[in-house]
Amino acid sequence: MKAVSVWRRQKTNYQNLGIVGKVVSKTRIIEAPQGFVGPYWVVMVAAPLRSESFEGQERVVGQWADVVEPKIGMKVVGVLRRIGEAGSSGVIEYGVKWKQL
C-alpha cells in the first residue's frame, strides 16, 4: 500500500481510540486472508461513538489484543496497535484493536 493511502486512513484509524464498549459478537479466524497470520480473534463491539442518531450506540469490528479470550458482554476499550505489515512503501500502519477494560 502506498504511503499516501496509509496517511489518508489515519483520519479514521484512530477515531475509536480510548472508546469503551462491550463485545456483542466474536469469531476466531483460523484460515486468514493473505497479509494476515491466523489464528486471531475479531470482535464486534457496541459502543457510544460519534453518531447521536443511532441511540448513542454504534457497532465496530476490530482485532482482539488481549491474552484473555473475548466473551460476549465483556467491557472493552480501544487501544493503539500496529494493524498491518510494512508494505513496499515501508510505512507501518497503526490503528485500534480491542482489549478487556
Binding site: T27, Q34, V60, G62, I83
Partner: peptide
C-alpha cells in the same frame, strides 16, 4: 479469500475478517 473480501467494507478488511468470519459473527 483476500479477493473475495473486496465485497466487504474497508473496516472489515482492516480487521483481517474473511467472509467465513463475517458469517461467524
Amino acid at each position: 479469500a483476500l479477493s473475495l473480501m473486496g465485497a466487504a467494507s474497508e473496516a472489515e478488511r482492516q480487521a483481517g475478517l474473511t467472509f467465513v468470519g463475517l458469517y461467524g459473527l
